[in-house]
Structure formats: C-alpha cells, structure tokens
Design a binder for these strands. Structure first.
Lengths: 205, 205
DNA sequence: AGGAAAACTGAAATAAAATTCGGATTTTGC
DNA sequence: GCAAAATCCGAATTTTATTTCAGTTTTCCT
C-alpha cells in the first residue's frame, strides 16, 4: 500500500534517526521534530504506517517501532580486520584490528557464535583460487577439511594456503605456480578457515 | 578498559537484540533475560559499561543505550539481489529481488545515494577477471569508464562484460578466451558498473 | 590480610512514553 | 458529490522505564 507524502516524511525521519543514533524516536520526539501541537498527530501517523505495513509496534512499549523489512533482513556481524595475526594468537591476546567489516550472515554462511574475522590479502599467491591482492577474506575458527583454504602461520607471517589431506599427511599448497607448494602442515598453526570473500571498489580489476 | 565476562554477556545481549529487532532492551528486559531478581543488577551493569566506555546513555530517556563504536562503524546499505534484470529497467518498473545483501559502505565504496544493487553471477565468462559462478557482484548506476566491468543487456539477458573504450568506439569484452569478445557497445544498454564483489561460503573454491 | 570493584537483592520515588477520548479541518478516491 | 481517509488540536490517563537508596556476598588485586 502506498504511503502519502507526509507518511513518507515520518518514516524517513524514523529511519534516519535510527540509523544515526540507534535509538527510535518517541512520539514526543516525533511531535517536536515536526512541530505538532499534539502527540496525537504523531500517534495517528504511526498508526497509519502500521496499517499500511511499513512498521510494526509493540503495545505499551517505549520506542518500540520496528521497520517491517527488518524481519527478513539477515543479521549482520561485524568482523574485525587484521592486517596480520601475531604468532601467539588463540591463547589469550587479542590482535589489534585495522578496522571492521560488516557482513550479513547468510551471504557468508557464518555461524554467529564462532568469532569470525577478516584478513586483508597481500600478494598473489592465491591467484588461481581467484583471490586477489587487496581482497578481504573472511575466516572462521574451525578444523580445516581437505581442500579448504586456510590462514596459516609460516615464519611469523600469516598467509593463505590451500589445505590438502588426501591420505594421511596434510600439507599446504599455494595457488600460484610461481610459489613453492607442498609445505608440510604438521606442527603448523592453522589460524582459520576461509568462509567468504569481499572485494572492494578501491582496486582495479 | 577491559570488560568482565559478565559485562561482555550483557553487551552481547544488547547488541544481538538491537540487531535483531532494532529496539534496545529496557532495564526490565535485561533483568528478566538474565533472571535477575532486581532491576538494579541490570542498571549497575549498564553503569559499568558506560564507565568503561562501551556504551553511552542519555539520562531519563527510555531505551537510550548507544554503542560507543557505532560512530566509527560504517553505515550499512541493503542492496537488492537480482537474478536477472529485465529489459525495460530504468524506466519505471522495479525488478523482483531474489533477496537482500547487506554490505558496509566503506568496503564497497558505494555512494549511499546512488541505488546500488547486486547480481548473482552465472557462468564463467569473467573467470579471468576472477569473478566466479555464484559470486554476487555489487553494481552502481553510473556512466562506465574504460576498463570498467559492467552489466549489460545482451539478447534479453544481463551479463557481465568489461567495457573498453581506448579510442572512440566502445565495445564489450568477456574475460574468458572461450567466449566471443568484442561486442560493439553502441546502442547497448549498460545497466550498472561493478563496484564490489561478495563471495559466499556455499561454494567450493 | 584488607580494600576495592564486581555482582547482586528489594523496595520505593520520579520521569518518560504510550494510549485514549472527543473533537476539527482538509484531501482524496470512487 | 460525498464518504473515507488523512492531518491535525488539547487534555487526561495508564503503563513503562529510569533512577535512587540501603544493603549483602563474592572476587580480584597488591
């Protein structure tokens, strides 16, 4: 059902305030923002928006407007971006994040409970797996399976490699013929398994 | 300042509820969720979180907890995913979306005003540009420049191609030697310019 | 060991917010 | 043209939320 111009203004106000502060305006705040002399003006607009399906409200709850399309929107997780993961991670220390990447859970298939993180890819050692320099790879902490792409700690540096375990001896393989493949994976610290990739606009393709 | 385990639990609860519903829990709701016998338990936790800088509150306002890191967290845009873009788009009709992809503005470099959208890639015609079957490509409506990757309408179907304009005659080129490149771009409907890419976990790499 | 912060209980006071009732005036869609 | 919807006013009422005060117990730090 179509919204009137005034109703759209109200909805836009609610949306921009909620985006900006994270808090939904109360009817009094709507009232004063639009200069209404009565709260009823705000209330009846909310009622109209609710009837048209644009918002949902919970009775007698403060600031309880929910946007209707929020329900079918997937939850978002903020994963920290690490330039590099220091050696001793996994024990206690939290590495310093170079920023945050927000990804929606469904498109990555992330488990919300497992703390995922992102790694900025440097170099082209995984070029044949179509992972480019500058890409952000999203990883999860879990046991690697055969053919998984993993972040591993090699010589104090974190690099991406493919994890291969055809029979009994697992090893790591770079996806670039110019790189030495076949690194024995014994005793290597696997820091995460790739679950997704985000490529930004800052680069040329 | 570090949070205690309990304080982290409270913060996680606030965050997940706010993400899910868009509404911040009240102290009473915190109380009943954690099974406190007194509201004061919830209140003192909020106070502790505020003192440690994790949240901000506005006095005497209902559900007025704000997350401190919300300021430096990039805004998120929900871009609709289209399986295919029908012929006449741009005029009036809105194509049916196959879902929504939430991406943060910074990592994609999207202009919040320009209506971005996502396209699910089918086939491997852009394999040498490292775009795989099943990837989601994020596009923006704007004029293509030389070497941009664009979504173009060819024979009623939307496909990705590289836009090339070295001298005067623009044309489109597939990034796969098995595909015919060199399609004259005159009169072709360019439906968007690629600004980012999201690769999910549902596939093998 | 001793003190401070953390993690609670219980009850009561105060402020904020939603809701309701009874209207008035202006648009807008058949 | 006319009824329904939309857009308001003003005040009173009910409910929700925050805040405060006065404690108890546990944990952590030096």
């Amino acid at each position: 059902m179509k919204l009137t111009q005034r109703q759209q203004e109200i909805l836009d106000y609610l949306q921009s305030e909620h985006r900006r502060t994270g808090i939904m305006p109360s009817t009094r705040e709507i009232q004063s923002h639009f200069g209404f002399a009565s709260q009823t003006a705000a209330v009846s607009h909310l009622r109209a928006l609710e009837k048209k399906g644009a918002i949902t409200r919970r009775e007698h709850k403060a600031r309880s407007v929910m946007f209707a399309d929020a329900a079918d929107r997937e939850p978002i997780v903020d994963v920290p971006i690490y330039g590099a993961i220091p050696a001793g991670y996994g024990d206690d220390s939290t590495p310093v994040a170079d920023g945050t990447l927000s990804v929606d859970v469904r498109s990555m298939g992330i488990d919300e409970k497992s703390k995922a993180y992102a790694l900025k890819v440097r170099g082209d050692s995984m070029i044949e797996a179509h992972i480019l320099d500058g890409d952000h790879v999203v990883l999860e902490y879990r046991e690697p399976r055969d053919q998984d792409i993993v972040a591993a700690l090699i010589d104090g540096e974190t690099t991406l490699k493919r994890f291969i375990q055809n029979n009994r001896k697992p090893f790591l393989k770079a996806e670039n013929p110019e790189y030495p493949d076949l690194i024995p994976a014994q005793e290597l610290l696997i820091q995460g398994v790739m679950v997704g990739l985000v490529r930004g606009a800052a680069r040329r393709w």
